[in-house]
Amino acid sequence: MLSLRGGRNQRQRRDLPDGTTLRWPGAEGKFALFAEVLWIGVLTVAGGLLIVTLPAALAASTRHLHRYLRADRSTIGQWWSDFGAALRTGWIVGLATTAAAVVLSFNLLLAGTRVLPGWQVVVAGGALAGVLVALILLQSAARWSPEHGWRRALRDGARSLITDPGAIIQLVLALLLTSIVTWQLLPLLVPGLGCLVFAVLAVKERERPAK
């Protein structure tokens, strides 16, 4: 199976009639790409089952999908290797993210009782803080690499929200879509997370106009 994928990748790395080369040859097969996105969802859910391991799973899945789109060799062994490398310090990121989510959820539930004065402000602030944490996590996971680690990934991920504000709208829409489909039917979390990883990678890699 791996040899077939390798052969297919070599065929996809062909030149176009105008002499240029496809930037994302792995995206040519639309059905195959859809299947790969679903597979990414399975890997992300499996890797993130312990919650604190979710950042590492997102980082590994983003790198895996990036290799696939470039028509490079992308195997489960490579995903597992990335996951293990990202988890060495990524569990700290996962623990901090989980703690923040618990605190924000508690505040939102408490504000939802409408007992606190100014509960509307608490709800709005908590929701915005939750979205911000999720955006930084997604942007950082897309920038993680074994060479640079999580510290640089977190710094670059947070900075990207300032340097590329357009990413906020696109990622919020992707988060909203994933949340809605999961709320409607829990098993849809698998394709939802796969599509979310695809969206994060597309936002990071999209072409920007030359200055």
Rank of each mutant, 00 (worst) to 15 (best):
H148R: 06
N9W: 09
G6H: 10
G84Y: 01
T182N: 11
G26F: 10
L33I: 01
L108E: 02
V122E: 08
L65D: 11
A96V: 13
K211P: 12
A111G: 05
F198I: 07
A153F: 04
V172S: 10
A153D: 00
E147T: 09
S145G: 14
R114Q: 12
T75P: 00
A158Y: 09
L50C: 09
G149S: 05
G149Q: 13
G48L: 04
V133I: 11
V181K: 09
A210W: 02
A199Q: 12
L49Q: 04
L171P: 09
Q120T: 15
E36P: 14
R73W: 00
I136D: 04
Q170F: 08
L186Y: 15
D82K: 04
L33R: 13
W80F: 08
A111E: 00
T178V: 01
V133S: 13
V133Y: 14
V123T: 09
W119S: 06
D15I: 03
A57I: 05
P117Y: 01
G6T: 05
V93M: 04
S61W: 05
G112I: 11
G84M: 13
T89S: 06
K211S: 07
P25C: 14
D72T: 02
W150N: 05
A202G: 10
L132D: 03
T62C: 04
R206E: 06
L128Y: 11
T89Q: 05
I92N: 06
I40H: 00
V203Y: 02
I51Q: 14
D82W: 14
A60K: 06
W144G: 11
V122G: 15
G47I: 11
R73P: 02
V93S: 11
L108P: 04
K30E: 04
S145Y: 05
F83M: 12
P25L: 15
V190R: 10
S179Q: 10
T21Q: 15
G29R: 09
S61G: 05
T113I: 07
W24H: 05
H148V: 00
V37F: 03
A46E: 07
A46N: 11
I92D: 01
T62S: 14
Q139V: 06
I168N: 11
V102L: 13
L135I: 15
L188R: 07
D164W: 00
G130T: 14
P146C: 06
Q184S: 11
S74Y: 02
W80T: 13
L128K: 04
I169C: 14
A100F: 04
G194T: 13
L104A: 14
P209Q: 03
L43H: 09
G29I: 03
A127V: 06
W39M: 15
I51H: 12
G47V: 07
G130E: 09
G41E: 08
F31Q: 11
L58S: 02
T53A: 15
L110A: 06
E207P: 05
A158W: 01
L109H: 09
A202C: 00
L109S: 12
R208M: 05
M1T: 07
D164I: 00
I92M: 12
G149W: 06
V121M: 07
W119L: 11
W183P: 04
L58Q: 13
P165M: 06
V181I: 15
H64P: 02
L132T: 08
W79L: 12
P17R: 07
P187H: 13
L43S: 03
Q170E: 12
R206L: 08
V131D: 07
